[in-house]
């Protein structure tokens, strides 16, 4: 079977680093957010873990950016560059993901529209989490109660948005029959040439033509 490299090692390390801390943050945050999980927050250990995880979570992208500024910009550009094929993807996706025919799906780049949407959600909610979290951690007592209340509210709203998209991301990457090689390529870096052709045609054509990613 022919293989093609889709994610370089540093990108994969970055992905799993963020993923691990984000899941710890989500879980420990859930303890304070939904009362079903409230008893797990008793004593405050989960809040300490939340803070340690927050520092690691922020450190990941910062270190990545300092070490690979150009690649970082490329990733950002990729996430926020949308064109008519993305509109086409959004229209065709419901049929495609419920196992319908593949013909209506426009060719996709290295990341498909759904994956880009996830990147955008991660970046935007990530920024909201960091700003509101910074206020609640370091400025508690120095800001008015009203400002704190708004920060908490936006932290919660960002959590609902990011949490919902996280469920979609994991379900598709791990369990969806159409995304059979997404997890494999993020873990080992490679996917089969056939998968790259059928799922990321635009990117595959560029790579085969010897162009840059």
């Amino acid at each position: 079977m022919q293989e093609i490299e889709r994610f370089r090692k540093r990108a994969r390390v970055q992905h799993w680093w963020i993923a691990a801390w984000a899941m710890i943050l989500g879980l420990t945050g859930l303890f304070l957010f939904l009362s079903w999980f409230g008893p797990a927050a008793e004593g405050g250990t989960s809040r300490l873990v939340h803070r340690i995880a927050a520092v690691c979570f922020v450190a990941g992208p910062v270190v990545y950016f300092l070490m690979n500024p150009r690649t970082s910009w490329e990733w950002l550009k990729e996430a926020f560059t949308w064109n008519k094929d993305d509109i086409g993807w959004l229209q065709a996706a419901p049929i495609y993901y419920f196992g319908g025919p593949e013909d209506a799906m426009p060719p996709q780049d290295r990341s498909n529209t759904g994956q880009k949407l996830w990147m955008v959600v991660v970046i935007i909610t990530g920024v909201i989490f960091v700003i509101t979290g910074f206020f609640m951690w370091f400025l508690k007592g120095n800001i008015s109660a009203e400002v704190y209340q708004v920060m908490l509210l936006f932290h919660d709203i960002a959590f609902i948005a990011a949490g919902a998209m996280f469920l979609v991301h994991v379900a598709l990457a791990v369990f969806h029959p159409r995304m059979s090689e997404a997890l494999r390529s993020m873990w080992g870096g490679k996917s089969s040439t056939h998968y790259a052709k059928t799922h990321h045609g635009k990117w595959y054509n560029r790579i085969s033509a010897g162009e840059s990613e």
Partner: peptide, 18 residues
């Protein structure tokens, strides 16, 4: 809703593709 929707989606997609 999201969890239920995903469960349904994956079950339907699997069945149809198989």
């Amino acid at each position: 809703v999201v969890a239920l929707g995903l469960l349904l989606n994956i079950m339907v997609a699997r069945a149809r593709i198989i």
